[in-house]
């Protein structure tokens, strides 16, 4: 049966995931959210300020991805402060942080000699990268 442990207020430490490992992942997530809010917020305000009276139909008809399809195009847009590139950067940060958190867990599993879960987590990272670099270009 589920019940209290011998030390009722102390959670037994997991050797694979000590409190420091949880804190590391939590900090990564907090940092990612903060960066996303800064980039996406700045981009949203700037984009709205450029032409607040622009119609939504015009925006829907002209998605920016065609300009961001290559890394060079995206970086050029970012360099000139393109607001949509800034929002996109925020989204990339979130995607990177999410892949990073699974990667961090994989490292912790290997360090804790939990090879099976290390392999599973590595496979999840591989699947996410497969989605970004194989499936995504396929649907483009």
């Amino acid at each position: 049966m589920t019940g209290p442990s011998a030390a009722p207020t102390e959670v037994p430490e997991d050797p694979t995931f000590p409190p420091a490992a949880y804190e590391r992942i939590s900090r990564l997530l907090r940092g990612g959210v903060l960066l996303f809010l800064v980039f996406a917020g700045a981009g949203m305000i700037a984009r709205t300020a450029i032409d607040p009276n622009e119609t939504v139909t015009a925006i829907l008809a002209n998605p920016p991805l065609s300009r961001f399809a290559s890394a060079g195009g995206f970086l050029s847009a970012l360099a000139v402060g393109n607001p949509e590139a800034l929002i996109t950067l925020g989204i990339y940060v979130m995607v990177g942080v999410t892949i990073g958190r699974v990667g961090l867990a994989a490292v912790d599993f290997y360090r804790g000699r939990e090879r099976s879960l290390g392999v599973v987590s590595t496979a999840v990272v591989a699947l996410l990268l497969l989605g970004l670099f194989v499936v995504a270009p396929f649907v483009r």
Binding site: A40, L60, E84, I87, T88, V95, V135
Partner: peptide, 16 residues
């Protein structure tokens, strides 16, 4: 999101 982005379905001004 990765796939939707590539499919031109993530519009920054809607998503933000």
């Amino acid at each position: 999101v990765g796939v939707l982005f590539a499919g031109n379905l993530v519009l920054p001004l809607l998503a933000a």
